[in-house]
Amino acid sequence: MSSSATRQNHLVQIFLRFGFLIVFAVFFVLFAVWNPVFLQGGNLLNIVEGSAILLIMALGLTLIVATGGIDLSIGIALDFGAAFAVVAMSSYGLDWFSAACAGIIGGSLVGLFNALLVVGLRISPFLATLSTFFIGSSVQRIFTNGGGPISYRRMPEEFRNLALGDVLGVPTEAVIATVLALIYFLVLERSIWGRQIHAIGMQRSAAIVAGIRVNRILILCFVCAAMTCAVGGLIAAANIRMFTPLSGFSYLLDAIAAVFIGAALHPRGRPNVLGTVAGVLFLGMIANGLNLMGLNFNTKDALQGIILVSALALAVAQRRARSS
């Protein structure tokens, strides 16, 4: 083998190993040069705030992917969370806190249904959560008579603050997302439960033989993930003072991308919370940067899609290069 070929090979290796960080940096510099506004503190905070709901959804999904499954119905959990909370306030006059609890319980129904299909009927998570998606979407259409939003103008100030308020100057939704990320980190990466979840995801039969209560953990994971996504729904509803049916779906693909980018960043390719956070921030940065470039809506969308495919391909290639 000639030395130039070896060197080229070497460069490929470096790129594969650190590729994602390089891409992250390149985009960061690109956006910063294109529009100096990108680097301003206010804008960076915008990225964080704008990514809050996506991060919450992606955290829930990280939990499911860590068990070796997939959840296509996280958007439905978001919708149910928003719907239950808004209806609890508008139709039943509950106070903001009870309404928030109602929303989270509403979301957990979606998780319970998934758990019933996956654990009870042993349907594969993909087909099970796809069914949940179908059924959940349809239920929303029926409930809203075709998908019209349910607005609630007199939403209590406290509930609105979930999205619009701030804690010591930091937007509440960013605070909620951060706290959730911290909890998820402790649970998934540091707790007994997290270790058992990872074991199930990597090699279920070995987890069973090790005495782990696999079914119970799977049920809990589906319910917790759905409840987390419902929190995202509360924020979304607070933001616009209404429940918009079928709005959760738009987060699904980005959440999947974030989780898998995150997994590829992990030295052993596991889905993990820090990686997911990085994946979400990457996607948030791309969306924000493309916005600042002043592209039209369609072009921005297409570019985002292409970047998503490339980023995932790179992430997977990088993981394979690591493991070889």
């Binding site: 997939i70 993909f126 999947i256 072009t299 969308d301 297409a302 292409i306 995932l312």
Partner: peptide, 27 residues
């Protein structure tokens, strides 16, 4: 070649292709 799972690949491609089509037809 890259070794992505078909599910992930084609889900992402779905988004990208729809995005490109929206540019072509201006939605």
């Amino acid at each position: 070649r890259v070794g992505m799972t078909p599910l992930l690949t084609t889900l992402a491609m779905f988004v990208a292709v729809v995005g490109v089509n929206n540019v072509i037809t201006s939605s």
